[in-house]
Design a protein around this nucleic acid. Sequence first.
DNA 1: TAGATTGTTAATCGATTAACAATC
DNA 2: TAGATTGTTAATCGATTAACAATC
Lengths: 227, 227
Amino acid sequence: MADHFAGRIDNASSDPQKVKVPEKSITRLRSYLFALDDYLAQGAARVSSDDISRKVGIKAHLIRRDLSQFGEFGRPSIGYDAAYLRTRLGQILHIDDSKDILWVGSSRLSQDSLLIKRFQDHGFNIVALFDTGTPARDACVGGLPVKPFTHVISTVSELGAQAAVLAVSQPEAQAAADVLISAGIKGILNLTSAVIVAPHGVCVRNVDIVAELLALSYYCHGMHDSD
Amino acid sequence: MADHFAGRIDNASSDPQKVKVPEKSITRLRSYLFALDDYLAQGAARVSSDDISRKVGIKAHLIRRDLSQFGEFGRPSIGYDAAYLRTRLGQILHIDDSKDILWVGSSRLSQDSLLIKRFQDHGFNIVALFDTGTPARDACVGGLPVKPFTHVISTVSELGAQAAVLAVSQPEAQAAADVLISAGIKGILNLTSAVIVAPHGVCVRNVDIVAELLALSYYCHGMHDSD
DNA sequence: TAGATTGTTAATCGATTAACAATC
DNA sequence: TAGATTGTTAATCGATTAACAATC
């Protein structure tokens, strides 16, 4: 169970030092994967970078460049084998693997009942659930026992999870993150509105619906201008 | 109620063509705002770019550069007046304004009971709620009546909302977005996993917890290397 | 005046776009 | 062979970093 996060990316150059794929590439890869699923559902066997481009609104140039960072998946004049490319992208993003994660802060999870299922559908298993308060002895959310946060270090070394979802209250967020990091967690999905500072080597990603709304509200009127 | 999204940014240059603030700047502005709230809560009257830097893990260089895009808020050798800067950032991000939004796809909202409150706390008022199915005549979520999606165009012209939250099912997402756009909506917060293609002039932002987890799972093992 | 910290200008870095050679 | 489409190399663009002049 330990290292489902530790698969290997085959870089086109097979040069281990060149693992320098920009974040935006990774995000776009996901778009390509959705487009492929669409084409496959339509029964397409082959797709060109131009086909994908039309579906996701990203230039074909960039699609080819993104893909070529991970290998040569296409054939000149023919395009990409849709099923093969789908499989490879799935491997690169580990989308079909089973992945173990920790969840810290149980209340958010208990409010959003469909979330656990959505996680499972994408291969994310919540293997332990913590609360920063003192949970009742038999507290349980979505079939998982709620453990006190003080158990986190022993649990991480036991289960070997490398990623955690941080869903505690905003004032607690940084301190909880620090504990997770000291426990050896390498990736944190931050659901709080707090800004988490993490050392080099730990990846923090933020999901903040209010922040995105704010950005939207900002951009909604920058739009009067030419660009 | 119409144009709460339409406030004006005072660009340092007062040149209307120069409204070209990078997206990442806007995102960082939010971090600075949180840091200021922290310092203000501690009773600080003045903060330097270096103070903020320590709190948010962003280089002081970049903080000053970000801020200077919007005006000259600080004083050499003194720093920034914390309360004043907080106010100005709030204005720039419209964080304290009341903002009207539409919500399309009622089921997601009914599952996450705290979300409406969280929206309201940040000044986002859900002024109309739609469902792509045929809602029961008196269907209601969070005190708001659920209208059929066919009413969206008339509602937008009536209420003048400029932004909408898209929370329909994934296969419906693009079509629903197209309707919203034709109704005159300028900003869409996409809560589905679908990739939404929108014309120039319409801003789409995505909140996809599963996508972020995937990115995390990818980066969790790119980390073995030097960078 | 000397020290501190800003806002800005110049240099570096990285990502996207465009052009093209390779090849099916 | 001619046409199509890839993967890659070169050119452009934008964002970050570093240096510094301005000023409190």
